[in-house]
Write a protein that binds this DNA or RNA. Structure first.
Length: 466
RNA sequence: UCCCCGAUAGCUCAAUUGGUAGAGCGAGCGGCUGUUAACCGCUAGGUCGUAGGUUCGAGUCCUACUCGGGGAGCCA
């Protein structure tokens, strides 16, 4: 008999004999017709489980089937038929139920059939994927990633694998994880007493990357339109529902382009992915709307249907000043916007995603392109209601003299950026790009409140189990 | 890292002014039913986060630590 995935079985015409394989979600027994059991079986291929009807005349009915519990792994042969009961259109009349893996102690099975808190399930992350919510998150996350790759592929963007290990302190942004093979208990010292990093694995200090951007710019200035999609690492001691120590980031980079092109690309990407998600994972999205966040679908529809609002940092500050709101942190031109400020703009004032552009140079990275006013840079953040910043990007400074001025101004080690500066010396062009935090976007799309629940095995301060 | 809150049964929580622990769900057994958040009955299950302290007596009060949650900072 053909092994059919449950997603396909639920869509198939009744009448076929098939085999399904999966895990028991629930078992319900009936004494009618000489005894029969209803097994709800899921295999993760879709949101819904399939109902298996196991009758009392099966050889292992009394000995095995009636003792099945949530989590047991089974293979079922049977005929796909129209369901006699309510709640499902088709079901399987079993001709054989083979138990592949028992749950050895149902009393302590961590993912038993009852309501569990997300905090608890995080402690059993190896089993939480069998629940409705985490199965749905996993499928949605996959669909988002696939949609992102498809979006770029259709527009002739090339996928570039930038390194995970880096020796440059990249943008000086954030604490980095050190990568070293030195013996911490017996560090090699130079004559002056300093640690001798020349004897470390790479012959110099090295770290896990905080961004693939600098590297991908090199490919951008050769392949025109490129993107990275990989893990990034921040050693910041952040303990929030929006931060991870290890997370995934999508970073497109486009040549012969300015900030407006960049903003348009960001908007197009988000719209495309949201659209793919609603059409491709309607089952999971219906669940998120019902049980997690009653506004998710409305929010995604708004992303797709409405053009994003664009506003300069200067105008955004003006909006905050005339809001009449009593913010905890004062609003002033030149300071970074606080969470409460972003919240006001996206959730109260405009009630939609916002592209804020042209930030003061002093609060942005050295590689961002200086505007003609000499005070602001061609930066942009995409702020989403409920999440905050999901995209941060900029037009890059393509003029070597301006770039050098910024590097000097910020006291960065110019030698380390020699190859990055070379890109400005040999056929430089205006170019731009941004970083999209995958997990924050998955949060936005699902309504999941904690970022640790949208990545398979979260890494955060003091959290690296599994 | 800072502020606030929390930790009691497998899970979610309750326990009056300090007097040595209860419920629901889950689990097991039985009953009923083409069932589907099933329903009814019975049963088992706890070194009250860890270590100290106050007290005749601590789940309850005090201190430290660990872990978790919410908010903030940093950012994606």
């Amino acid at each position: 008999m053909a092994w059919v995935k449950i997603a396909d079985a639920l869509r198939a015409e009744p009448g076929r004999d098939i085999t399904i394989k999966g895990w028991i979600r629930t078992r319900r027994d009936s004494k009618a017709d000489g005894g029969l059991s209803f097994l709800s079986v899921h295999d993760g291929t879709c949101f819904d489980p399939i109902q298996v009807v196991a009758r009392g005349d099966l050889t292992n009915y009394d000995s095995e089937i009636t003792t099945l519990t949530t989590g047991c792994a089974v293979e079922v042969d049977g005929r796909l038929v129209e369901s006699q009961g309510k709640g499902q259109s088709v079901e399987i009349q079993a001709s054989a139920v083979r138990i592949v893996g028992w749950v050895e102690n149902p009393e302590t099975y961590p993912a038993s059939q009852k309501r569990h808190t997300f905090e608890y399930l995080r402690e059993v992350a190896h089993l939480r994927t069998r629940t409705n919510t985490f199965g749905a998150v996993a499928r949605v996350r996959h669909t988002i990633c696939a949609a992102i790759h498809r979006f770029f592929d259709e527009r002739t963007f090339y996928y570039v694998h930038t390194p995970i290990i880096t020796a440059s302190d990249a943008e000086g942004a954030g604490q980095m994880f050190r990568v070293s093979t030195l013996d911490l208990l017996n560090l090699p010292r130079r004559d002056d007493g300093q640690i001798d990093f020349a004897r470390d694995f790479f012959g110099k200090q090295s770290y896990l990357t905080v961004s693939g951007q600098l590297n991908v710019e090199s490919f951008c200035l050769a392949l025109s339109r490129v993107y990275t999609f990989g893990p990034t690492f921040r050693a910041e001691n952040s303990n929030t529902s929006r931060h991870l120590s290890e997370f995934w980031m999508i970073e497109p980079e486009i040549a012969f382009a300015d900030l407006a092109d960049n903003a348009q690309l960001a908007e197009d990407l988000l719209k495309h992915v949201c659209d793919d998600l609603l059409t491709g994972r309607g089952d999971d999205m219906a669940f998120f709307e019902l049980r997690i966040d009653k506004n998710v679908i409305t929010r995604l529809r708004a992303i797709i249907d409405k053009p994003f609002r664009r506003i300069t940092y200067t105008d955004a500050i003006a909006e905050l000043e005339k809001s009449g709101k009593n913010f905890e942190f004062p609003v002033s031109w030149g300071a970074d916007m606080q969470s409460e400020h972003e919240r006001y703009l996206t959730e109260e004032r405009f009630k939609q995603p916002l592209i804020v552009t042209d930030y003061p140079k002093d609060i942005k990275a050295f590689y961002m392109r200086m505007n003609d006013d000499g005070k602001t840079v061609a930066a942009m953040d995409v702020l989403a209601p409920g999440i905050g910043e999901i995209i941060g990007g900029s037009q890059r400074e393509e003029r070597l003299d301006r770039l050098d001025a910024r590097i000097d101004e910020m006291g960065l080690p110019k030698e380390q950026y020699w190859w990055y500066r070379d890109l400005r010396r040999y056929g430089t062009v205006p170019h731009a790009g941004f970083g999209l935090g995958l997990e924050r976007f998955v949060q936005f799309c699902t309504g999941m409140a904690n970022i640790r629940d949208v990545i398979p095995f979260p890494r955060a301060p003091r959290q690296a189990e599994f």
